[in-house]
Amino acid sequence: MKTPQQGFGGLGSIPSFLEWFGELGCFVGKFVRSTFSRPFHFQALLQQMHEIGTRSLPLVVLASASTGVVLSLHTRESLVRFGAKGLLPVVIVMTIIKESGPIITALIVCGRVGAGIGAQLASMKVTEQIDAIEASGINAFRLLVVTRILACILMLPLLTIVADLSGILVGWLANTLVEHVSLVRFIQDGFKQLTFQDLLPTTFRTAIFGFIIGLLGCFQGTRSTGGTEGVARAATSAVVLASLFVIVADVGLVRLIQIVFRP
């Protein structure tokens, strides 16, 4: 028998999808209320920031660096063909800062952290550890959920900045191996036309990606039912839903930023 919960993350049919969405809305409300009420678990937040941020760093740097190489090789080829080689730094810097840095960081964190949060909370629920926290008079939502979502919100922009840097640096490296150009020159050329408005909104929109990742990991984790299978389902659905929502949100946010920040 397939109950609504047993469908894919509770998204089996239209009524259960609506129910899922309603519950998600309540969950967000609870998150907002709990974030602004005491006690605040600062130590747990730091621990989660380490878990989510520091530990995702190697993977994010690696992925962004390889994009930098690929981007540099591809654009070089195209620009040479059109005789616009001088634009290479600006194209690389713009592409990385505006799109590939943020989205690659978000999707990698989706996979690593979304699955991690989903599986961990689901297994804590199955083994009654969440009940045990509540039973000792501690608000488990504040301790587990609020800290994880906030850590994701805070860490994603930081990870994105590191990803941007490593992408640009490696992009330069790949470029200079073909045709020598100094790093200073590359950076100067690349950032010449870049305004603050290009930089800040595009980087800090990843805070919203962080919110989506933390939210869906926690939501799918805490509502999971049904033993080990439920844990696996929570992890998978957290990753899939978070990736999907991040991509959709990206489209919306890019357009929004264009509308709001263009003179």
């Binding site: 083994t127 509540e134 039973a135 501690i138």
Partner: peptide, 18 residues
């Protein structure tokens, strides 16, 4: 939560934080 602090609960499967 104040009441819960005064009540000890021993879970069937211990429910230790792993």
């Amino acid at each position: 939560n104040e009441v819960r602090k005064k009540v000890g609960f021993v879970f069937q499967n211990a429910a230790l934080y792993d």
